[in-house]
């Protein structure tokens, strides 16, 4: 193929002392075709994922070099932070700890009570999720996508699909893992959807990222839906990706236009999507799919306290939360208001 190109364009070339190999146009055609083939392969087929992963390992040393100046700056900044500021921060943290201790005592009682009630109902126990702390290395370099790169990867047993949260709410989901880093798609990205529940009345819906500015949309809700400005949206947990009851967003604007049967609802995420350095990777325990014929004791996963359960928990697909609705997932326990501890 290439040879043909070269031969075709050979006689169009300038005299020999100007010769630069194949003509620019031949090169253009060849490399443009190659790029288009690559684009098609990468966007439609999954062959290149592992190649990309391996190449990223080679890039890692360069990444470390590039990160060095900003890390040095942060280090010196922290090192020279004033005594006064540290004292202030310490006092503030003590106050906060005190407050949270009080709340925690109530939570203990509530957890016990909840466990008792669940036992009485013979319902599933809530699953205990495992968490890992990660630090944001840098923001994604593509202005079109809302992504961040964190410093935990497959070496630290991070899986694609893991939920990412910070102290104030959900941030996003791990979408690509590399050996020592992973890519987190933020909930404001256009391609990410997150199942939510309105804290006030338990209404379930799915929030989509808006993509352009840092907001979320709640599409496909009728114009007369019971949502008010300032309503808090929390994760509903029916997707098996995000744990129940994490803050996601606050409703900031509701527009009802007469020509559309749907309300346009704009929400602002509560998580500090743009301004935190540390994030928490929360992975839901892997639950095996059980059928009614199986003896539950033999197939139990050691991590999941599913003994003495009657209902079976289905493992949901972690990558696609948008397809899971409650109707498709009837076996999961859905108490009417799982967010009592927040109240």
């Amino acid at each position: 193929m290439v040879q043909d190109f070269h031969q075709n364009f050979e006689h169009q070339q300038a005299p020999a002392f100007f010769a630069r190999g194949p003509s620019p146009f031949a090169r253009l055609v060849f490399f443009a075709a190659l790029s288009l083939a690559l684009i098609a392969t990468d966007s439609r087929l999954q062959y290149l994922a592992s190649i990309r992963e391996n190449l990223m390992v080679l890039l890692h040393p360069l990444q470390v070099v590039a990160n060095a100046p900003s890390q040095l700056y942060q280090f010196t900044n922290e090192y020279f932070s004033t005594h006064h500021r540290l004292l202030n921060e310490n006092a503030q943290l003590k106050k906060q700890a005190l407050k949270q201790n009080v709340a925690l005592q109530r939570l203990n009682i509530l957890t016990l009570e909840n466990a008792n009630l669940r036992d009485l109902l013979q319902a599933n126990k809530t699953l205990v999720e495992s968490t890992a702390l990660a630090e944001i290395m840098h923001v994604g370099r593509d202005p079109f996508a809302k992504k961040i790169i964190v410093n935990r990867g497959t070496n630290h047993k991070v899986l694609a699909g893991t939920a990412v949260v910070d102290a104030t709410g959900v941030i996003g989901q791990v979408t690509r893992t590399y050996p020592s880093s992973s890519e987190v798609t933020l909930i404001t990205d256009k391609s990410l959807a997150i199942p939510i529940q309105v804290e006030r009345n338990g209404l379930r819906a799915i929030a989509f990222g808006h993509g352009r500015d840092n907001t979320l949309d709640l599409p496909y809700l009728p114009a007369n839906v019971d949502i008010q400005r300032g309503d808090k949206l929390v994760t509903s947990g029916i997707d098996g990706v995000y744990p129940v009851g994490l803050a996601v967003a606050t409703v900031s604007e509701i527009k009802v236009t007469p020509d559309s049967p749907f309300a346009r609802i704009v929400c602002i995420p509560t998580g500090g999507i743009e301004n935190h350095r540390q994030v928490l990777l929360v992975s839901m325990p892997q639950v095996k799919v059980l059928t009614h014929d199986n003896n539950p004791n033999s197939t139990n996963n050691s991590k999941t306290p599913t003994s003495n359960t009657k209902n079976n928990v289905e493992k949901t697909q972690p990558q696609k939360p948008k397809e899971t609705t409650q109707e498709q997932n009837p076996n999961k326990p859905q108490p009417n208001n799982p967010n009592k501890p927040h109240a």
Partner: peptide, 17 residues
């Protein structure tokens, strides 16, 4: 393309043209 994490070939095509 590798560094930005986008689809392979986008920047390659843009730079080629």
């Amino acid at each position: 393309d590798l560094a930005t994490g986008g689809i392979f070939g986008q920047y390659a095509l843009a730079y080629t043209v």
